[in-house]
Simulated scan of single mutants.
Amino acid sequence: MPTSPGDQQPDGRPDGAEPGPRAERDPWAAPPPGSEPVERVPYPVATPWGAPHPRNGMGVSALVLGITGVLLSLFIVLFWLAWLPALLALIFGGIGLSQARKGLATNRGMALTGVILGVAGLLIAAASAVFTAVIVDKAVDHVRAKVEESKASDESSKKAEAAAEKARHLAFGEAYTFTNGLKVTVGKPGPFTPDEFANGHAKDNKAIEVTVTVVNTGAERVRVETGLPDVSDADGATAELVIDGSGRQKVIDGYVLPGRKAVGTYAFSLPPKAAGKAEVAFSPDALKLPDAYWSGALG
């Protein structure tokens, strides 16, 4: 049977019936007896507009520059480039630490590491500069010593060459020993009378006879490669070799045995105005040995 209207609640529910899911309820009313309390979630607090962001750029820059400065300072050829990033790392790291103390930055460790690396880079760069300066100074001293040694050697060599050159200039009748063991003596030239078939002697010229003696002072036989001397007159002009049919000229050629000697005789024609002095140049091996010179006045 339907319930009477008197038995219903004001909201249209029967007396004692539970409210339906769609029933309207006063949100400020106390919960009905026996029901669980409703948990109220607090509203989130909104972040105020315009909050400042951490200023970590100086710390990051200090760390990067510090690493760069240390790496550059480790290379001898690049240490002079390390001071700038190391110094900037020190400056930026100091600024980063100041901002961290004021609460404007959150990377205090980066800034501190950048400062440490900047100081280390400057110290290593300075040490590398000192080391390079010492090495360069030693290298310069070494080069200077080598130059001085070379100069001394050159002077000694020049003196030795001058002494050797002087030793190769002799007077007629003196002996000179070449490095191959041949001792050569050129006697004072005497007069020579060419025959009527002579070649190389002009009329009114003065003909002289040059005698060259070669003695082997060594222990092995030595070949005389060029046994023909060169004769110059008092004016320095080359005298002409005289060849005739008398058979008095003899050219030194072939080997000279140890302890033996070979004698060569040659005739030359000098002009009358330059016949007062002569110079004879001779070498037993013109391709390997320098000439020796004999000179003097002619009778």
Rank of each mutant, 00 (worst) to 15 (best):
L257S: 12
P229Q: 01
D11G: 01
E220M: 12
V184Y: 03
P271D: 14
G114Y: 03
G16Q: 04
Q99L: 15
K166M: 11
A171V: 03
K188M: 10
G6F: 14
G190F: 06
G109M: 12
R55E: 10
G103A: 10
S128P: 00
R108S: 15
G259S: 11
G59K: 02
T3E: 13
H142Y: 14
G200E: 03
V256T: 07
E174G: 10
I116W: 06
T211E: 03
T3D: 04
D230Y: 09
E155S: 10
D291S: 13
T179L: 06
A89R: 05
G296H: 04
P189H: 07
K166V: 04
P19R: 14
A162I: 03
N205L: 03
A89G: 03
T177W: 01
N56H: 00
N107V: 11
E36P: 15
A111G: 03
A125H: 01
T177Y: 03
P271G: 14
N205I: 02
M110F: 15
E24C: 14
L97A: 04
R144E: 13
V45P: 00
A23E: 13
L257F: 10
A29W: 06
F282V: 02
S157E: 06
P10I: 06
A105M: 03
T113P: 05
R101I: 15
E18Y: 08
L65D: 05
D233L: 08
L122K: 12
W83C: 03
I252P: 06
D15I: 08
D230S: 13
T106S: 13
D26C: 06
G254N: 06
I252A: 05
A275H: 15
D235M: 07
H201M: 02
